[in-house]
Design a protein around this nucleic acid. Structure first.
Lengths: 351, 351
DNA sequence: CTGTTAGCGCCTTCAG
DNA sequence: CTGAAGGCGCTAACAG
């Protein structure tokens, strides 16, 4: 057997036209039961495994799949509980719609370009912060709908963002309200240069990533209102997917007088708790920690992490719907909400 | 603008044939630079975004993508560090080959069938233990290459398995060698009925899932040699992706005299450590724990988990290659290796 | 180098 | 309810 069987072969074998054979598979109600059975039987006999999706694809126009762009290692992506939650919401909607999810993963820039150009999908979701701009550029070129998540894509593209600045301000206000004045910040990447470690005021002000920039601005808002000079606040920068504990350690070393840490993500916050606990500090009494995101792990941590909750799953659902329903470009801003748990308390000195 | 631009339009506009236009995009070295530029310029002017992958697909025959079948929630799948590692190896090979990864996720049986029938992929990887048989059936019907991972798919299909029985035997021998006699087992699912909790000898003997069955047989081999009657050994059954801590707790409650636990996976082993530590037991002195898999978390646990290491990442790579290289069906059995860490020690009574 | 041509496998009018 | 025919967009083989 050399040539693969196709619908035409089955039709011939069953003595019907190709159109009828097609209907036998795809719209059985249009074909007399007797004929349909004959077609199906011939198909089975010939080893035909049903209409080839590729043919259908070309004809139909719609692919019914959405591509999720993941730069770097898949492990880094899925090690982050935030991404897992996001994908959960996304896949939920895709499942309901009978749509597939393609991981457009690529190690380097060149591979990413090719993947994005050739992926068989109805649209893209670009959600990784690293290289976001370039990926968005690529996605735009492909002329397919895409949604930028936690990334700014301009007014002619769809995006989903959070009330980052407001949320950050409220997180900082929570600590200030508890009496903290020696606050440090563990931040996500500010820009695309692989830097980790201490952040100078100049670097802070030149922040390029929107989420990081806005959250830092939010902290600054609160600090200013409380008379704290953010230029004097220790800030350390870390990747979310790696180096978190290392940078938490450096921050704790560099600023021993700190009584509270503002973390730009729960992953960073949890790493801070772990590091602090590991060196014998009591959280929250020696050190308060506030995260951002409210991933499931936050509530299960010891102590449970106070954090700024965002609707991650809903975000995933929304992103999927925006693609699948081919919505016109829109910029959505989702609300956040402070969830107070056990990782924050007044500073010990104050009691 | 109503009709989308296609290659033919660009060719006409540039005053070249369609074939040349195609070459300008796909095999630039075959086209004089001048002409190629004209084509590219016309394409840009018309807003043509490069050859549509769907056309190429139909023509080429090869899709260059592999489908990973994931039953149930995506979260369950990716919450398991084992699956994350596996996907890492898989995606590594796919990246190198410029191939994509499609998640064939489906909540229920009907959706799974449709997804598998219509996924645009070169082959499947079936790796979830639940519903494995039915999924394999579906995949076979599609007449595409597929690889069953940790699942038996028969001699005419590809599969990757481990030395499960041997590995389990050695794990048990390790504990026995340390002097343990009161050993309990925390097992993965034995069959497809959603049962968790205590396992009777009858149920144990009727194990349907190959991995579980073989590992239990391995334990039994070691027990028999040491004069331990496996029918008297407390065995509790748990899902890997949920309920692990709950069942670890039940096991510890039901068999308080236990000095060591054989866990069929690291996830179960880590849950056991956590549960034991939580109730004030010292691991390994009050309770030794041996896992299976050696996921990254195992080495980082407190205490680090003694476990039977398997080459997970390699497994992922292998699975991807088997599809991408269109290898003839083969059944591969990968080796395992005991890694002794801090979670095992002689029972306290013996010292 | 460039142009021509023939499908890839399917679905969906449209006419019977 | 069934059959015939056109074309989805592209590429590869072959002929200039």
């Amino acid at each position: 057997m050399n040539r693969p069987i196709r619908l035409a072969d089955v039709a011939t074998a069953a003595g019907v036209s190709q159109g009828t054979a097609s209907n036998a598979f795809n719209r059985p109600e249009l074909v007399r039961a007797e004929i349909r059975e004959r077609v199906l039987k011939e198909a089975a006999r010939l080893g035909y495994s049903g209409p080839d999706p590729r043919g259908r694809l070309l004809r139909a126009g719609k692919v019914n799949a959405i591509g999720v762009v993941v730069m770097g290692r898949l492990t880094y992506f899925f090690n982050d509980p935030f991404n897992r939650e996001f994908m959960e919401g996304l896949s939920e909607v895709c499942d309901e719609a009978g749509a597939g999810v393609s991981l457009i993963s690529a190690a380097d820039q060149k591979a990413a370009a090719w993947s994005i150009e050739t992926a068989v999908v109805d649209g893209f979701i670009v959600q990784c912060i690293e290289d976001g701009d370039r990926l968005i550029e690529l996605a735009k070129r492909r002329k397919l709908p895409f949604v930028a998540v936690d990334l700014d894509a301009g007014p002619d593209a769809s995006s989903i963002r959070l009330e980052d600045r407001k949320g950050a301000r409220e997180a900082a206000e929570h600590l200030i309200g508890l009496g903290h004045r020696n606050i440090a910040i563990l931040t996500l990447e500010l820009r695309d240069d692989g830097h980790t470690g201490p952040v100078t005021p100049e670097r802070r002000q030149s922040a390029h990533y929107g989420v990081t920039r806005d959250r830092l601005l939010g902290y600054e808002d609160a600090f200013r209102a409380a008379g704290i000079d953010i230029d004097k606040v220790p800030i350390f920068e870390s990747f979310n997917d790696r180096s978190a504990e290392e940078q938490a350690a450096r921050l704790l070393d560099a600023a021993p007088q700190t009584t509270a840490v503002l973390a730009l993500s729960d992953v960073l916050g949890l790493a801070t708790i772990k590091e602090a606990t590991g060196r014998g500090l009591s959280v929250p009494h020696d050190l308060s920690v506030v995260g951002f995101d409210d991933v499931p792990e936050a509530a299960r941590a010891v102590p449970p992490l106070t954090t700024m909750a965002q609707p991650v799953i809903e975000k995933g659902r929304l992103a999927a719907r925006m693609i699948l329903e081919r919505r016109a470009p829109q910029q959505i801003v989702l609300p956040v909400k402070l969830v107070i748990r056990g990782s924050t308390a007044p500073p010990r000195g104050r009691r």
